[in-house]
């Protein structure tokens, strides 16, 4: 067990190192892009003196490592400077912070829906192998796998927003304003994000469960006199989860990075839309911060999945 601890500490150290490397890459990448950030910040009308003053003030004349250190120090405190698309009036951190709340809520909601719906369906599907229910679920999942989320968003808007009037399309309410109405609104984009992923997950879970059901240890359990249900929950499920976890992690990273199309359809102020508008406006400070965020999310999720695997599968533990 002590070795296990040691392994975890090692993993944490390598996590921190990858995060550091990511920050270097993110920073350098934007230094290589041609263009004068002073000019971008102050606009084409700025005089030479104003530009020089800005460069001095922002430390743009210093060496690359110095500027990186300065940027990283700020980044660690959550300070990424000011956004140029808002005429340097808006802090990048505030801008991203607001959008992040929306994206995080959307991610959390859709992730819950994905897990809560696909697990029972996948299990039901596998248990009714080659029954009518199985064929029906398979048919429906195949259909939804092919539907892109934004199109589904449009259908949902039409059905629940316009016909059933369960929410007002486009009328986003921020959580500070009215949290209940915010949640009621957010549930619909969350469904739009979740449905195609559910379809894929049900399919994956079904095939994973069926594969496990054919293995020898299941026969052993049956030979002990266990019922099929307790074999499923006590023996099969945990084994079947192993491939599913990787996929769940990919989904989570994907929706945490922002879902631009769904945000657009539901008029949500999320991270995805901010990223697109920042790229269009050459607002590098914002883009840099979002890229760093996305990269970190992916790295951290991978780290957590790694730990989760070791917890589930004793064969992966080193001793």
């Amino acid at each position: 067990m002590q070795m296990g601890m040691k392994g975890t500490v090692k993993k944490i150290i390598s996590l921190l190192m990858s995060l550091f490397l990511t920050s270097i890459l993110t920073f350098t990448a934007f230094q290589v892009i041609p263009g004068d950030s002073a000019l971008i910040a102050l606009g084409m009308d700025a005089t030479e003196e104003q530009l020089e003053e800005y460069r001095e003030e922002m430390g743009l004349n210093k060496s690359l490592p110095m500027r990186f250190a300065r940027w990283l120090k700020g980044a660690l405190k959550g300070d990424f400077g000011y956004s140029s698309q808002y005429q340097m009036q808006m802090k990048v951190s505030t801008l991203i912070g607001d959008r992040l709340t929306v994206t995080l809520w959307l991610a959390a909601l859709s992730f819950c829906i994905i897990v809560l719906v696909s697990f029972p369906l996948g299990i039901l599907n596998a248990r009714n192998r080659s029954g009518t229910l199985d064929s029906l679920i398979t048919l429906v999942t195949h259909f939804f796998m092919a539907v892109p989320p934004f199109f589904l968003g449009m259908i949902i808007t039409l059905l629940f927003g316009i016909i059933l009037k369960w929410f007002t399309p486009g009328n986003y309410v921020s959580p500070e304003e009215d949290f209940q109405r915010f949640l009621r609104f957010m549930i619909f984009p969350a469904i739009a994000v979740a449905v195609p992923k559910i379809a894929m997950l049900v399919k994956l879970l079904r095939s994973s469960l069926l594969r496990e059901m054919g293995l020898d240890y299941v026969r052993t359990a049956k030979g002990k006199g266990m019922t099929d249900t307790s074999i499923l929950y006590r023996h099969i499920l945990k084994n079947a989860l192993i491939p599913v976890i990787t996929f769940l992690a990919m989904i989570l990273a994907d929706i945490l990075a922002g879902t631009i199309l769904v945000e657009q359809v539901f008029n949500l102020p999320g991270l995805g839309r901010l990223l697109v508008s920042s790229i269009a406006n050459r607002d590098y400070a914002v883009v840099q911060a979002i890229v760093l965020y996305i990269a970190s999310v992916v790295i951290v999720i991978n780290f957590l999945v790694d730990l989760l695997y070791q917890w589930i599968d004793p064969r992966l533990r080193k001793d």
């Binding site: 020898d216 030979g223 002990k224 599968d313």
Partner: peptide, 16 residues
């Protein structure tokens, strides 16, 4: 009636 299976590695659940 109980059975001793051919391949004990595969016949045990690897996670328990």
């Amino acid at each position: 009636i109980s059975m001793v299976y051919q391949d004990p590695m595969a016949s045990f659940n690897p996670l328990l």
